[in-house]
Amino acid sequence: MTPDTLERAVWTRKHLITLNELTREEILFILDTAESFKEVSTRSVKKVPALRGRVVVTMFFEDSTRTRLSFELAAQRLSADVIDFAEKMSSTQKGESLIDTARNIEAMGVDIMILRHPASGAPLDLTRAVNCCVVNAGDGQHAHPTQGLLDLFTIRERKGRIDGLNVAIVGDIAHSRVARSDLVGLLKLGAKVWFVGPPTLVPRSFEQLGARVTHDFDAILPEMDVVNMLRIQKERITSNVFPSVREYVKLFGLDRQRLTRCKPDVLIMHPGPVNRGIELAADVADGPQSSILRQVTNGLAVRMAVLFLCQQAAGHPAAAARA
């Protein structure tokens, strides 16, 4: 924990939409706050009363296992009441718009909305339509800020720092909101980031966002401190932007052979769910360098911190002015 950050920073945002709008100090403040929430999960009573009497709704318009469960558990550990909006059984099937649905849910007295949506920008739209807090749980190809934060948290925990680290993010960058959120957070905290993959999935245009782009994984591998392997989405494998699976595994898959060329203390990450044998070999995914399960554990503490801070800011005049 860095007491300096806790001393200076005051959190005044009631929404978390992307990491772009956050300062370096605000990101560190969330990470430091999350640090203090880790302890809650280790006690006999795994609950604190910070959000007692508050209502949190999860609205997921895309499939998700760990993100939804992680948010729900985070809210419950803060003693909030959690309700779950199931899109497939709802009036959106009758044509109700997202905004109308959200306004109706808000009218029931909701304090925090957690939204995952296939359309990039949907959470930002939502902030203009409702008064409660909005937390982005992933929108289209745009952003997944809590995944970005938990990746930063895990890197800092394992490496002791982020500043000056070399980080490779490998896979389908073009369609990845995780890659974008990781990039933004890592650059703000002083890391160097390489985007790695075939040219069809990693266009050069990403250099404009501050990433280094390469199509030669093996060339940069020995210099990397962290390698984050993104999931290859099955639906893209059949499209013509994707090489054959065999070719992909040969060039960009991380197996034991390739791992021997990495730094011995390299940190292997994956946002899950893993396609074993494609982007990650099973023995690498379960090996000592892997932090995959640690990321999931840390995700809970990070999401508790985000829910707590946004709710705390909601009653504050500075947050109202900013929203």
Binding site: T33, S36, Q312, H316
Partner: peptide, 12 residues
């Protein structure tokens, strides 16, 4: 907690 707002700093 509901009145101190962003002044709530958790140190663990």
């Amino acid at each position: 907690l509901s009145t101190i707002g962003p002044n709530a700093v958790t140190r663990g």
